[in-house]
């Protein structure tokens, strides 16, 4: 059995606490720390004051391709890439710090943060294993989440070329196009 470093454990606990605070599902914590399931469960109850929600994680890339989620996911991923390019961060720390900045941006614009931290974490995994990527919009030049092999020359993003009925809803915190 390998000897456990207390410092490493402390670091993992503080990461887990940050993730729980952001609303992460238990599966994220299990995957990103070496802490046992029992300890994570106890930690979750202590931090969140309730039991974690059960059930499978969303596993499909489809959600990221729908109109509003795609815009939210693109904002998060641009911030995440920025952090990764400007400093050397552990992968999970980049997700935590990037997600905090994403929350700030959406709240500053009065928008509902549609992207959960669990989805943000999944998104980074999807990009890492090549199931999703970013493509430059031919109109505004911004980078947006797309399937791989999108034809870059003709690609127009969800904000430059929204679908016909997009952004007409009146729900508070939704992205509007009038």
């Amino acid at each position: 059995m390998r000897s456990k470093s207390i410092l490493t454990e402390a670091k993992q606990i503080s990461r887990a606490v940050a993730l729980i605070g952001l609303g992460a599902r238990l599966q994220v914590l299990e995957s990103e720390t070496d802490l046992s399931y029992e300890r994570l469960l106890r930690l979750y109850k202590e931090v969140a004051g309730k039991s974690p929600s059960k059930g499978q994680l969303p596993f499909s890339t489809d959600w990221f391709m729908t109109w509003q989620p795609n815009i939210h996911a693109s904002l998060f991923l641009n911030i995440h890439e920025y952090l990764n390019k400007s400093s050397a961060l552990d992968e999970i720390d980049a997700v935590i710090k990037g997600y905090q900045l994403y929350l700030e941006e959406t709240s500053a614009q009065g928008l509902e943060p549609l992207l959960s931290v669990t989805r943000a974490w999944r998104l980074v995994k999807f990009v890492d294993n090549g199931m999703l990527t970013m493509t430059k919009c031919s109109k505004c030049g911004g980078q947006f989440v797309t399937h791989p092999h999108e034809i870059a020359r003709h690609y127009e993003c969800a904000l430059c070329n929204p679908p016909a009925r997009a952004g007409k809803g009146k729900a508070a915190g939704a992205i509007r196009m009038h």
Partner: peptide, 16 residues
């Protein structure tokens, strides 16, 4: 109504 949307679009471009 579309101010927030335009600002969000700008944020995506600036973050990139």
């Amino acid at each position: 109504a579309n101010d927030a949307t335009a600002r969000l679009h700008a944020s995506i471009l600036l973050a990139g």
